[in-house]
């Protein structure tokens, strides 16, 4: 709905700022080879996907995805519902098994704790206090010394240190999602997969959460893969936006804008408009 509402805005951009459009199209036509040298030290995991396919019965959801993500990159995956973007994420996170094809993490060896998922729902245990919910994220290290301290630090990172002894039921939607983020962060993951984690939040909470995600990503330098239906969110956060259509990567767009990005700036809006144009197809829609 947000996309539809935003559409007229980006249409006006088309009329008002044609040179920006040209610029944005220049970005897209460049299509740099996906491996860009990392600007800073990263402990993220690189990701290499070769001819990945996934079928549920006769329904082929992914029809051969090839993808290379360098360590530490922030990649957003957008596409219409049912295009296979969530399926791709679930395969990367190891929640489902691919029908064929391979997913590898470079030459690095990935432990289970190195890859974490944040779901659309917070999925907190209602019967555990906030702090023990975060401790769940430690995986096998849960019983190790200092587990408490690490969980406390992760809560602090998302700004909820004072809620440690609360039940999840008293938290707001945004706070629950922040606890879920702390749980995903606590093991110090090297690849974090986000499955529309902000989809259920109101607009303001959402922007605050986007900033938090960006800050945490910059701090902890993990590889981030964000599945979203909100193109504005994708261009605001990601280094690179993948558009998935019919089970394949249809577009691979590098967003080479400096951070922190100005929300609502002409460049972002133009980029968003052109990606939306691709998603919605030609002709009057929405």
């Amino acid at each position: 709905m947000q996309q539809v509402l935003r559409l007229p805005v980006s249409r006006t951009e088309v009329i008002d700022a044609p040179d920006v459009i040209r610029q944005a199209e220049a970005f897209r036509s460049q299509r740099k080879p996906s491996v860009t040298p990392a600007k800073f030290e990263t402990r993220g995991l690189p990701l290499v996907i070769r001819d990945l396919r996934k079928a549920f019965g006769d329904n082929e959801v992914l029809r051969g995805v090839d993808l290379e993500i360098p360590a530490g990159q922030f990649v957003a995956i957008v596409g219409q519902s049912g295009c296979g973007k969530s399926t791709l994420l679930r395969l990367i996170a190891g929640l489902d098994k691919p029908t064929s094809g391979t997913i590898s993490f470079g030459d690095a060896e990935a432990r289970a704790e190195d890859i974490r998922v944040m779901f659309q729902e917070p999925r907190l245990l209602p019967w555990a206090r906030v702090l023990s919910n975060v401790e769940v994220g430690l995986g096998r290290d849960r019983k190790a010394a200092g587990a408490h301290e690490r969980a406390r630090q992760a809560l602090e990172e998302v700004g909820l240190a004072e809620k440690r002894d609360q039940w999840p039921s008293v938290l707001s939607g945004g706070q629950k999602q922040r606890v879920a983020l702390a749980r995903a962060l606590v093991s110090g993951p090297r690849l974090l997969a986000f499955d529309e984690p902000l989809g259920a939040l109101d607009a303001l909470t959402r922007i605050a959460m986007q900033r938090l995600l960006e800050r945490v990503w910059a701090d902890q330098t993990f590889t981030a893969i964000l599945v979203t239906h909100d193109v504005a969110e994708a261009v605001a956060l990601a280094d690179r936006v993948l558009v998935i259509e019919n089970g394949r990567i249809a577009e691979d767009i590098t967003v080479d804008l400096p951070r922190p990005r100005q929300r609502g700036s002409a460049e972002l809006a133009a980029l968003e408009g052109s990606i939306l144009g691709q998603l919605l197809g030609p002709g009057p829609t929405g």
């Binding site: 996170a93 190891g94 929640l95 289970a112 998922v117 999925r123 245990l125 769940v136 995986g139 749980r183």
Partner: peptide
């Protein structure tokens, strides 16, 4: 079932 999936993902 979402909680069970979460538990599995987090290595329980």
């Amino acid at each position: 079932p979402q909680l069970i999936e979460m538990g599995r993902v987090y290595g329980m």
